[in-house]
Design a protein around this nucleic acid. Structure first.
Length: 496
RNA sequence: GGGCCCGUAGCUCAGUGGCAGAGCAGUGGACUUUUAAUCCAUCGGUCCUCGGUUCGAAUCCGAGCGGGCCUACCA
C-alpha cells in the first residue's frame, strides 16, 4: 500500500479513528514530570517499584510491540523515557495502540519501575494521544543525513540528530552569554530600525523593500553602526544591540544574506579599551558555553584565553607577504604586485579592494590562533578615527581566529568635518562604479555635528563566533534556517 | 561567477547498457520485561527534469533544476 500518499492516508485514517474515541489534539495536558524529572524521582525513591507515580508526555521515537505487551520510547525536551503497556493492565485502551505511529505525541500515567534489562520505565495505567502526526519521522537509525533536507526541513534534522540540537543550544548559550557580559558591564541594550532611508555603516549592497502607504522604498540595514552612534550623541554612554542585518550578496558556507550582528559603543573608550574588552569577552563566552578556554578545530586546538597575539596591518603584510603597502601608493602599482603574486584582480578594483584582497589571501588564513590586527589603512575604514602620528592609518583592529574575522572595532570618528570628507571620498568611488561603499548619510552627519563623545565601537558576527565555539566548518550549520534557493513546491500526499 | 561531486521507495543506501533492489518505516500474522526487539508474510518507484545516442538508458551524451564541497566576491 505505502506510497507516500498511502502512508499519509493511513495516518489520516488512524486520526479519524482516534477522534471517534477522544480528542487527538487536546489543548491541555497534565504533565507531572519531565522525562528527566521522572528518572530523578525514581532514583530518589530508591528505585522502589510502583512507588513513584508520574504523568509524562512526549513524542514517540520507537515502538516495540510484542503481542499482549508493548514498549514505546517517548522523548521530551529533557530526554527519553520508556513506557510499558500491558494488555491486562490497560483493559480496553490496549487495543488502540496500533493507532499510534512514530512521531505522535502521547501522555501516559503510571508508576516507575526498572525492567530486567535495566531500563527505567513507566508501567502505563492510562494514556492518550495528544497529537497525531500525519507524516513519519526520519529513519530511526541513520536519521536524516541529506544536507538539503536538513536545512529545508530543520525540524526533521532537530528530531533526528542530537548534534543539530547541540549546535542550536550552543548558539543560544553564546547569545545569552554575550548579553550577560554587556549588561553586567552597564551597557544598555537597544533596538534600532531595520527599515532605513539608506543603508550605511558597512560596505555592502542592501536589500530594497517598498512601503505601500508611504509609497516609498526602504533599505534593510546592513549594519547597526550609524543609529547606535546617534544614541551616543543623545547621551547614552554604553549601548549595544544584537540584531539581524541583511546583505544582498552570495550564499555560501561563509555567507548568509541575513546574519546576526552584535555591535557595542562605549563613550570615552578607545580601541585599546575595546581590544581588552574583546579578549575578556571571548574568554568569558568560551568558559560559559564550553566550560573551557580552548576549543578543538580539526587537528588544531584554539586557545581562547587572554592575552591574544597582536600585530599591525602593515607588519602582518610585511611578514607574510614581504612588502610594505606604503611603497605601492597607487592602484596601478598595487595591482601589479597582486598579479605578480598570482592574484586575479577584478578590472574595476580600487586600491583598497586590491590591498584587502592581498590581506585576505596571504595573511588572514594564517591567523589561526586569536590574533588582533591593529591600524588599518584609512581608505578601508571611513568611519574610524585617524591615528595622530600616522595620517595613513586609523585606530582600528580586527580579531582573527581560524583564519576569519571574528571582531572589528575602532576608535570612532567623531570629527564631523573629517567624517563628511571621508564619506564624500567613498561617494566618489561609488560614482566610479563601486557600488559597495559607504554612502554619504546627511542625516547621520547632521547628528554628528551636534557632538559625539570619543568612543570605542565593536562589531561581532555572531554566526561566526558560534562557528568558532562549535567547531563547525559551515555557517549554514549554525543558522537554524539558512537561506535556500526557491524550490518548486511538492504537493506531497494530501490529495492522494 | 568558476571547478569538482551528488540527486534511485517516506528515510538510509546498493545497482553504472539487458526484468528496479536491500535495510528501516508501513501493512497482516506470532510473541506479556523489550530497547537498532525477534520471526514469517507483504505493500511501496516521475530512478530530479527535458532532450539525444542505442534494438534496449537509472546507467552513456547534452541542457536545465536543486544540493554539497572548494574557490572567488563579500572591509
Amino acid at each position: 500500500m505505502p506510497t507516500e500518499a498511502e502512508l499519509y492516508a493511513q495516518r489520516l485514517e488512524k486520526r479519524e479513528r482516534l477522534l471517534q474515541r477522544a480528542d487527538a489534539y487536546p489543548a491541555r495536558v497534565r504533565r507531572t514530570h519531565t522525562a528527566a524529572e521522572a528518572h530523578a524521582a525514581f532514583a530518589e525513591a530508591g528505585e522502589a517499584e510502583g512507588a513513584v507515580a508520574v504523568t509524562v508526555v512526549g513524542r514517540v521515537t520507537a515502538q516495540r510491540v510484542m503481542g499482549k505487551a508493548a514498549f514505546l520510547d517517548v522523548r521530551d525536551g529533557t530526554g527519553h523515557v520508556q513506557l510499558h503497556f500491558r494488555r491486562d493492565r490497560l483493559a480496553d485502551t490496549f487495543e488502540d495502540l496500533p493507532l499510534v505511529d512514530l512521531g505522535d505525541f502521547l501522555e501516559a500515567t503510571g508508576t516507575m519501575f526498572r525492567t530486567r534489562t535495566g531500563e527505567v520505565t513507566v508501567a502505563v495505567e492510562s494514556w492518550r494521544v495528544i497529537t497525531k502526526a500525519l507524516r513519519p519521522p526520519p529513519e530511526k537509525w541513520h536519521g536524516l543525513t541529506d544536507v538539503e533536507a536538513r536545512y529545508r526541513q530543520r525540524y526533521l534534522d532537530l528530531m533526528a540528530n542530537e548534534r543539530s540540537r547541540e549546535i542550536a543550544r550552543t548558539r543560544i548559550a553564546v547569545v545569552a552569554a554575550l548579553r550577560r557580559f554587556f549588561v553586567d558591564r552597564g551597557f544598555l541594550e537597544v533596538e534600532t530600525p531595520v527599515l532605513q532611508d539608506q543603508a550605511g555603516g558597512a560596505a555592502a549592497r542592501p536589500f530594497v523593500t517598498h512601503h505601500n502607504a508611504l509609497d516609498r522604498d526602504f533599505f534593510l540595514r546592513i549594519s547597526l553602526e550609524l543609529h547606535l552612534k546617534r544614541l551616543l550623541i543623545g547621551g547614552m554612554e554604553k549601548v549595544f544591540e544584537i540584531g539581524r542585518v541583511f546583505r544582498n550578496e552570495g550564499v555560501s558556507t561563509r555567507h548568509n544574506p541575513e546574519f546576526t550582528l552584535l555591535e557595542s559603543y562605549e563613550a570615552y573608550a578607545d580601541y585599546e579599551d575595546v581590544a581588552a574588552m574583546v579578549e575578556e569577552m571571548v574568554a568569558y563566552v568560551a568558559l560559559e558555553v564550553l566550560g573551557a578556554s580552548h576549543v578543538a578545530y580539526g587537528e588544531e586546538v584554539i586557545h581562547l584565553a587572554a592575552p591574544f597575539a597582536r600585530t599591525t596591518y602593515r607588519r602582518a603584510l610585511q611578514e607574510q607577504c614581504g612588502f610594505d603597502y606604503r611603497d605601492y601608493p597607487t592602484t596601478q602599482a598595487l595591482r601589479g604586485l597582486a598579479q605578480e603574486r598570482g592574484l586575479e584582480v577584478a578590472p574595476g578594483a580600487s586600491w583598497a579592494t586590491v590591498l584587502d584582497q592581498l590581506m585576505s589571501t596571504f595573511v588572514e588564513p594564517k591567523l589561526v590562533q586569536p590574533t588582533f590586527v591593529f591600524d588599518y589603512p584609512t581608505e578601508l575604514s571611513p568611519l574610524a578615527k585617524r591615528k595622530v602620528d600616522d595620517e595613513g592609518a586609523v585606530e582600528r583592529f580586527e580579531l582573527f581566529v581560524r583564519g576569519f574575522e571574528v571582531a572589528n572595532a575602532y576608535s570612532e570618528l567623531n570629527d564631523p568635518v573629517d567624517q563628511r570628507a571621508r564619506m564624500q571620498e567613498q561617494a566618489q568611488k561609488r560614482a566610479e562604479g563601486d557600488d559597495e561603499v559607504e554612502l554619504a548619510d546627511e542625516d547621520f552627519l547632521l547628528a554628528l555635528e551636534h557632538g559625539m563623545p570619543p568612543a570605542g565601537g565593536l562589531g561581532i558576527g555572531i554566526d561566526r563566533l558560534v562557528q568558532l565555539m562549535t567547531g563547525e566548518h559551515s555557517l549554514r550549520e549554525v543558522i537554524l534556517f539558512p537561506a535556500m534557493r526557491e524550490r518548486a513546491r511538492e504537493d506531497g500526499a494530501t490529495d492522494g
